[in-house]
Nucleic acid binder design. Structure first.
Length: 369
DNA sequence: ATTCCTTTGAAGAGC
DNA sequence: GCTCTTCAAAGGAAT
C-alpha cells in the first residue's frame, strides 16, 4: 500500500508533502471501501469481536495446526487477512500464545472498548492547526506557541505523550505551561521564539537526558525565528535522541584517546534524529491511552492491533486530518533537519526482521507449495 | 539489558 | 516504476 504513493513522494514538491497520503486514502477506495463498509456497517463494536475471533483462530491454528502455519488465517476468512496476515501468522504465534487472548479478553469484556470512541476525538482543534503558519520555509516565523508541556517530567503512565504538534492542537483548551518551565528544564528559551522543538514527539525521558551543548543548538536551521543572532535556540529538539537513548554522563578522558578514536566516538555520539511520525503514528499516540483505559489492555502489540482496525474504520475526513498533521510534521522536520535522511537511522535498531521474514517466507512457501 | 511483537505510513535501496 | 526493507511509538513479554 505505501508503495502506491511513494513515487510521487512527500518530498516531491515542497507543499505537496503528504498530499499523496490523502490521495492514497482515496485511491484505496475500492479496497478500503469494502473494509469500511464492513466495519462501519457492523459498527465498531465488531472490531474487537473480529479481532478476538481472529486471535482465537490464530492461537487455535498455532496450537492445533502446528504443522500448518496458515491454518489460523484461513479460518478467519476475512478479506484483510490475505497477504499481510500471511506474513504475520508466524509472529502472532509468539505474541499470542495461551496468555494473550486472555488479556485481550479482558479488554473485550468492556463493551465500551469496542464502541466508536474515536468519534469523540477532539478533531475540532485540527482547524487550528490548519491555520498554523508554515514554520519558516516561506521566511515567515510561526506564531509563538504556548510553551510545551514538560514531557520529560511527565510520569510514564500519565496522559499520552502525543506529538506536541498534535497534542497542542487537539487540546480544546491548550494549557499554558508554567512560565518557568524552561527554567525547570534548565534551558534558555528566547521569548517570542516559535517552539519548534515541541513539534516532535519526545522519547520518554529523553529530554532530560539530552546534553545541553550539542551541535544542533547552533545549527542555522535550528535558529528558526530566534530573532537573536548568535543566540541559540537553546533547546534540543525532541526528535533528537542521544545514541542508545541515554546520555553519556561519564566524561571520558580525551587524553587517552587518539584523534581517530575520538572522532569515531563523536560519530557514535551523534544524536539520533528520529523520523517524523506518520499519520497512523499520530493517531496511535492520541488513541492509545483511551484504548488502554477502556480496554484495560496493556500490551502494545494488542493495542496496536485494535488501533489499526479503528484506523481503517475512520472516515476519510478523520483520517485526512491525521495525514495533514503528519504532513505538517514532515515539513517541520525537513526544515529543522534539511540534510537528514531516513537512511541515517538505518541499522541503528538491531533487528532480526530479515531472519524473521525469511522464516515466514519459508513458512509461506511451505504453505503454498 | 536487549529484542520482539504489532500496527500503518514514509522513505530509501535495489532491480 | 515496482518491490522489499527499515524505522517511527509503545510497553509488556520473552530472551
Amino acid at each position: 500500500m505505501p508503495q502506491l504513493d511513494s513515487g510521487g513522494g512527500g518530498a516531491g514538491g515542497g507543499d505537496d508533502l503528504g498530499a499523496p497520503d490523502e490521495l492514497l486514502a482515496f485511491q484505496d477506495e475500492g479496497e478500503e471501501q469494502d473494509d469500511k463498509s464492513r466495519d462501519s456497517a457492523a459498527g465498531p463494536e465488531r472490531d474487537l469481536a473480529e479481532l478476538k475471533s481472529s486471535l482465537v483462530n490464530e492461537s487455535e491454528g498455532a496450537a492445533g495446526g502446528a504443522g500448518v502455519p496458515g491454518a489460523g488465517a484461513g479460518a478467519r476468512g476475512e478479506a484483510e487477512v490475505g497477504a499481510e496476515a500471511l506474513g504475520r501468522e508466524h509472529a502472532s504465534q509468539r505474541l499470542f500464545p495461551d496468555k494473550l487472548p486472555e488479556s485481550l479478553e479482558d479488554g473485550l469484556k468492556a463493551p465500551e472498548c469496542a464502541s466508536g470512541m474515536y468519534k469523540d476525538t477532539v478533531y475540532s482543534a485540527f482547524n487550528l492547526l490548519m491555520h498554523y503558519p508554515p514554520p519558516s520555509g516561506a521566511g515567515q516565523h510561526p506564531q509563538p506557541q504556548p510553551p510545551l508541556h514538560n514531557k520529560a517530567s511527565q510520569p510514564a503512565h500519565s496522559v499520552p505523550q502525543l506529538s506536541p504538534l498534535y497534542e497542542h492542537f487537539s487540546s480544546p483548551h491548550p494549557t499554558p505551561a508554567p512560565a518557568d518551565i524552561s527554567q525547570k528544564q534548565g534551558v534558555h528559551r528566547p521569548l517570542q521564539t516559535p517552539d519548534l522543538s515541541g513539534f516532535y514527539s519526545l522519547t520518554s525521558g529523553s529530554m532530560g537526558q539530552l546534553p545541553h551543548t550539542v551541535s544542533w543548538f547552533t545549527h542555522p536551521s535550528l535558529m528558526l525565528g530566534s530573532g537573536v543572532p548568535g543566540h541559540p535556540a537553546a533547546i534540543p529538539h525532541p526528535a533528537i535522541v542521544p545514541p542508545s537513548g541515554k546520555q553519556e554522563l561519564q566524561p571520558y578522558d580525551r587524553s587517552l584517546k587518539t584523534q581517530a578514536e575520538s572522532k569515531a566516538e563523536k560519530e557514535a555520539k551523534k544524536p539520533t534524529i528520529k523520523k517524523p511520525l506518520n499519520a497512523f503514528m499520530l493517531y496511535m499516540k492520541e488513541m492509545r491511552a483511551k484504548v488502554i483505559a477502556e480496554c484495560t489492555l496493556k500490551e502494545s502489540a494488542a493495542i496496536n492491533q485494535i488501533l489499526g482496525r479503528r484506523w481503517h474504520a475512520l472516515s476519510r475526513e478523520e483520517q485526512a486530518k491525521y495525514y495533514e498533521l503528519a504532513r505538517k510534521e514532515r515539513q517541520l522536520h525537513m526544515q529543522l533537519y534539511p540534510g537528514w535522511s531516513a537512511r541515517d537511522n538505518y541499522g541503528k535498531k538491531k533487528r532480526r526482521s530479515r531472519e524473521k521474514h525469511q522464516e515466514s517466507n519459508t513458512d509461506n512457501s511451505l504453505h503454498y507449495s
